[in-house]
Design a protein around this nucleic acid. Structure first.
Length: 338
DNA sequence: AATTGTGTTGAC
DNA sequence: TCAACACAATTG
């Protein structure tokens, strides 16, 4: 049941001694006009107005292909076989996804759409610290930036200001006693409508066409990061955690009656945590429903709010990327390398 | 039903 | 290697 990508994870990373820490302040510079290389094959004549043009517009970026629905796909070739890097709303996102893959697959000399990463870029070390398959996975799940974010936090030098407690302060949000369907084949965790609407009000989630949802990251008891898609099901009119949930259930061995707790860091980062308490089943019957405790956190607010500080905007970006004009990706990557 | 991602082919 | 095109497999 391993859903590993079609890439092999060979090619040992031999340049592990490049763990540099460069404080790049991520300039909020807008997406720079692409500096393309000589690759005159772009016929950028958007004639979408002409009725139903079944001809999809070619992308001016390398490794980017148009999708029937107007989005863009990213792909790279390796050993005569295509490696799909996912679909994106913006060409730039797809192009940058390709760039990331290219640098991981073919090294820094790889031809890229945007200026390559500087030798001391965080991304470079980050990329090569992971297998190709994992990089591809992050790209496909649009998780790249988020993982990078977490990675950076881990590497960030402890200012010795850490609280006395060994673990960062976190507040309990609520518990959910999982139902049979929560751990069944439906691959979803239902979040009570009341709770969801009160604390997870997400613009666009309930919209008629906005069944896209939002990606949320949780850290479990052992420090592993889990990402779930939070969305609204029109059919059942319920809020659910879908993508990624089944994996969590499987790995944790969750069973009906077990309790899953949700927490949130009291810090400004609003980091979310998830923990599961496996009920010691002694052959007996699991206890029915439990209670949902409310909590005071607004995901959107946490993400956007943090952005006003100018720093940690990745979470906000992540949320923003769910919408139409999302140009948040690789804000930095496209500028580095001058 | 809507989208993604693969099969496949032909050009570079 | 690369991308255009068609379409089957998935997902919401």
């Amino acid at each position: 049941m391993d859903s590993s990508s079609c890439i092999d994870e060979s090619s040992a990373s031999s340049d592990a001694g490049a763990a540099i820490l460069s404080p790049s302040p991520t300039p909020p510079s807008p997406p720079p006009p692409l500096q393309r290389m000589g690759s005159g094959t772009s016929t950028l004549t958007i004639a979408e107005s002409s009725s139903e043009s079944r001809k999809l517009p070619s992308s001016q970026y390398k490794g980017v292909v148009p999708q029937p629905n107007g989005r863009w796909g990213a792909q790279i070739y390796e050993k005569h076989q295509r490696v799909w890097l996912g679909t994106f709303n913006l060409e730039r996102e797809a192009a940058c996804a390709y760039d990331a893959a290219a640098q991981r697959f073919r090294g820094r000399d790889a031809a890229t759409n945007f200026p390559p990463l500087s030798p001391d870029a965080h991304e470079l070390a980050f990329l090569h610290a992971r297998s190709k398959a994992e990089v591809v996975d992050m790209l496909r799940k649009h998780t790249y930036l988020d993982e990078l974010h977490h990675s950076r936090l881990r590497l960030s030098p402890p200012p010795s200001f850490l609280p006395s407690a060994s673990k960062p302060p976190r507040e309990h949000l609520f518990d959910k006693s999982v139902t049979p369907s929560d751990v069944g084949k439906l691959n979803r965790l239902v979040i009570p409508k009341q709770q969801a609407e009160k604390h997870f009000s997400l613009p666009g989630v309930v919209g008629g066409e906005g069944a896209k949802g939002l990606l949320l990251s949780f850290e479990d008891g052992v420090g592993k990061v889990w990402r779930f898609r939070y969305s609204y099901w029109n059919s059942s009119q319920s809020y659910v955690l879908t993508k990624g949930w089944s994996r969590f259930v499987k790995e944790k061995g969750l069973k009906a009656g077990d309790t899953v707790g949700f927490y949130r860091s009291k810090g400004g980062d609003g980091q979310l945590y998830i923990e599961c308490r496996i009920r010691a089943a002694v052959g007996g019957v699991v206890s029915p429903a439990k209670v949902f405790r409310l909590f005071g956190v607004d995901i959107m607010k946490a993400a956007v709010g943090a952005n006003e500080n100018g720093k940690r905007g990745l979470e906000a970006l992540e949320a923003a990327m769910s919408g139409p004009g999302s140009a948040g990706w690789f804000k930095k990557q496209c500028v580095v390398g001058m």
